[in-house]
Structure formats: C-alpha cells, structure tokens
Design a protein around this nucleic acid. Structure first.
Lengths: 160, 160
DNA sequence: ATTGAAAGATGGTTAGT
DNA sequence: ACTAACCATCTTTCAAT
C-alpha cells in the first residue's frame, strides 16, 4: 500500500496532516513543484482512500466537553449477537467519540467526552448501563493532556 | 465560554468539525447568510481559540500504522520530577500519538500507533522501557474500530 | 508525470445599510 | 451584524511535452 506512494505523496500527506488549509501553491513551493501536480496527487490520494477527510480541531474545554474519560467495559454475555448489539447502541451516544473492541480482558474501550463528572454519571446511569447487562465497567479520567496528535508519522519504506 | 457563542457560531463549528473544506459560501448557504459574516465569525472563532486548527485525517491502515495500542503505564518512582521527566521523553516518540496523566491506578495512558506487533515490541524494549524505571505496563490492542470521531457534539446552552 | 496558460470560483477587503 | 461589490488569489481543466 505504502509502496504505491513516492516521496512527494508522503510529503503531501505529512503537510496536510499538520495543516489541511495549505493551498496547492504553498505545498508546491515547499516541494519545488507547481500547483497542478499537487492538485492531481491530492485528488488521487483522496480517491485511493489515503485521505479520509478534512476536519477542524476544536478546543474541547471551551465547548463544555472538558472532561475526557476512558471507559473499559466488559459484557456479561459474550455471544456475537450481544456484542454486536452493544456496539450498535453505544456508537449512537453522542458522548462516545471512540469505541474499540479490544484484545485482553476488556471487551470494549470507549473514549467519552462530557462536561463534568455529573454528566458522566448521568451517561453511565441513563445510557451505558441500559444497553445490555455489563460485567464490569472501569472509568479513568484525564487529569492532564501531555500530547494529543491526530497525525500519524509516515516513514518511507526502505528502497524508495 | 459557550455563552459567548450564538447558534450561528455553533452551527459553523459543527459544520467545520465534519468538513473543514467547506467554503464560506457553502456554509453561508446552509445558514442563510452571505460569505462575509461567515468569514468574520470563523476568524473570531480562530482568534478566541475555539478552533485550534485544520487537519487531514488519513487511513492509518494504508500508511503502515495499522496496529493501535493503548498502553497503561505505572512508574516506580512517583516524584514530580520523575513524572515530568517521563512525560518530556515519551512525547518525543513518534509512535505515541497521545499521552495523558490519568486518575486511578495508572499514572499514564498512551495511544500508540505502529505497524505490527514486532514494531510494538521494539517500541517497548528500545524506547518506553528506557525512559525511567516502570512499575507496570499493560498493553491492549485494538481488534476492531467501531467508532472513531474527531468531532465533539456541541449543544446549545439553555436559554439562548 | 509535469508545466504553463486560461477560465471559473473563492477568499478577503472595503464601503454602505 | 449583515449585504454588495471589488480585486487578488486559488482551484481546476486542458494542451503540450
């Protein structure tokens, strides 16, 4: 997959991950190319699914989502049917930004963003606990963000 | 904080969280306004720090970062000095996309993106274990992504 | 795969309501 | 705070290499 990209494509992806508002002209200047090849390459990268989209990153503390929790959930019934039902329900909750099925002891791992502990408590009681019977729920809260990146490092595969 | 925003600002933030490439004209059409007030409002939202930036979202599976791990770390020495030193080092590792200091039993919580289990093993042995003496490290791996959002829901405060 | 040019659309500023 | 009009800049297409 990565082998279908050359170093110019990778540089473009790196730049757009940091700042999606760069113009094709600006990207071209840093890569010593005119806007047209940049335009064509970005179009291709989008069509091939390397770029999934462009989003604005907000300061969650300013929009009443200051409390970030990671919630580890174990279901009581591990049938495929029950697991699927849990997923279908939980991804509809606006408080749940991310939901992963995990290896190890816990079945699911949720990133939950809410205003405060009261709201989190409401979320557990009124939403999460009502989906399916839960075996265990373990919540930890972010005290301090030391790093939060949306961008992945991209390293050239050897031999390119 | 949220109270300094009206419903138009909130709609703009919602739209840009979903698609940062919307033009002022397109946003204006959905909000029944001309591009100019959209432009002015976005400028203000950026200056006030509601919008932290615009980024491209990549498909991590296509760029050799298909394995996502959550790593819970407890240090052996909990002095402020040691905790700070750990943070300073760990945020320089390219594999670490996120690093949080957490409530509860674990000191730190890392989101780590690597190519595969071999690479993760290298990351632990060659990088993480060499920062400071660790008490415990618990790794869980994402088997399946059910939901992954970068956008926060924004709800109007009552009385606006 | 890249350049350069041309056409159309958008961004950003300004003046006016 | 909004509209309308303006110009500079950018996107996108296309012929040519």
């Amino acid at each position: 997959m990565l082998n279908s990209l050359d170093s110019t494509d990778i540089r473009i992806l790196q730049l757009l991950q940091e700042n999606a508002r760069l113009t094709n002209k600006e990207i071209g200047e840093r890569l010593n190319k005119t806007p047209t090849p940049i335009y064509e390459r970005i179009k291709k990268l989008q069509e091939q699914g390397y770029i999934k989209g462009y989003v604005a990153i907000l300061d969650h503390k300013k929009i009443d989502r200051g409390l970030m929790a990671f919630t580890q959930v174990q279901l009581r019934d591990h049938s495929a049917e029950n697991l699927n039902h849990f997923v279908e329900e939980v991804i509809t909750f606006e408080e749940v930004l991310e939901c992963y099925q995990m290896s190890g002891g816990f079945d699911f791992f949720l990133r939950v963003a809410v205003k405060d502990l009261d709201t989190y408590h409401d979320f557990l009681m009124k939403k999460l606990f009502n989906v399916v019977p839960l075996g265990s729920v373990q919540s930890t809260f972010v005290l301090k963000e030391a790093k939060r990146e949306t961008s992945f490092p991209i390293t050239m595969p050897k031999g390119k």
